[in-house]
Design a binder for these strands. Structure first.
Lengths: 208, 208
DNA sequence: GGAAAATCTTGACGACTGTCCAGGAATGCT
DNA sequence: AGCATTCCTGGACAGTCGTCAAGATTTTCC
């Protein structure tokens, strides 16, 4: 194996991955708009710069594309609250930063969140989605738990809930906000920080 | 309008409603198994005692059937926790009864819960579902709020969260349990009461 | 009993789906 | 330049979908 051959193969593999990512991004746009059920491969291809046949050159079938998409998306969003954890120096500051970040992503990335909840629901019926969804939900849970732990440290009070429950709680409130978005976006986005301010202290054991 | 005519017409209308309900129940069975996207009208009809064409005799289109189904289902389940509210005489008792009821419905009616979360997700993409879903979510929120208020009364402490947030919190935890069901049903059902015991006290203001 | 109304079946329609494939276009390599 | 490989297109395929309507069947009513 010569150096050029190695470089060529890697560059070829890179190109391959790059195309897959391009397709994934197109697919994510379409999926975010239409949802899993309504987004056909033809529609996805139309919203890209390729024809509908190319999908099966890079992905075995639709499910593999979707799973790839959802993992691709996760890789981008799972570090969303890292800055909140790192930059906050007091408990109150963290709560504010966390609430602001929630508002920001709810405002700017609503289609992606809709898609995520859609896929998570679909995974209850489609066996093939379950593994990827479970993995990502686990990752999201860990992401939230980092926030809660940091909050706990800053406040000097231990968490009142275990990681799964804490994630469920915050995810539930976020999902309600997402669902309420169509009926009054401004009101929802304004109310959310207040909900977070009320909710976060409850996740820690009462002041001793 | 004679008495017999009135009786005949009412009986006819009753028959009509009865058929609609029969179809709704068949549809709910199929929808609960396959989810919204995979449940075709033919499949729904096959799981009933009618042929596939009859659906359009009783419903304008698929969406009207689905919406009818979901409202029909709601009417059955929205009083689920009334006994918890009425029969509990202490705060701890209510928490236990509530947790047990959650476990019971999670065990016995998982397909219906899956369907509900599926439809709620679909409503983010399908305009036609939104109104019915919003209405039912509102009803569920009120159902949960009755539990929280009763709990608050029994404990002598005011709620720490408003109704929407309280619903989001509990719904989120329940949804996580439902999602976790396929990987270890017994473990999930056993863990849930503990989560409820930990969570419920947090919904009330700290002991003064 | 027989007309009228309702209920239901059956088959068909056009549109859309995921998948596959034959062949053209582009690219890289020697 | 010319071959070989990779990449991409566009059409075809079998299947499924929601919808509809014509006719058979059943029920209702006088």
């Amino acid at each position: 194996m010569t150096t050029t051959a190695t470089r060529a193969r890697r560059s070829s593999a890179d190109k391959h991955d790059e195309r897959r990512n391009q397709l994934a991004e197109s697919a994510l746009r379409t999926l975010g708009e239409l949802g899993y059920a309504r987004a056909s491969l033809r529609e996805i291809a139309t919203n890209s710069e390729f024809s509908h046949g190319v999908v099966h050159y890079y992905f075995r079938d639709k499910l593999e594309l979707i799973v790839y998409c959802v993992r691709y998306y996760k890789a981008q969003c799972v570090r969303r609250y890292d800055s909140v954890v790192e930059d906050s120096t007091t408990a109150d500051e963290l709560v504010e930063a966390f609430g602001a970040k929630l508002v920001e992503t709810l405002r700017d990335e609503a289609p992606m969140h809709r898609l995520w909840y859609d896929l998570r629901s679909q995974s209850m019926f489609e066996e093939g989605l379950r593994e990827a969804v479970t993995y990502i939900d686990q990752t999201l849970q860990e992401m939230i738990w980092r926030v809660v732990e940091r909050y706990s440290d800053l406040a000097g009070r231990p968490p009142a809930l275990a990681s799964p429950a804490a994630y469920g709680v915050l995810d539930g409130v976020f999902q309600q906000a997402l669902l309420a978005l169509p009926r009054g976006e401004d009101a929802v986005l304004e109310a959310l920080p207040g909900q977070v301010r009320a909710l976060m202290p409850l996740l820690l054991a009462p002041q001793s």
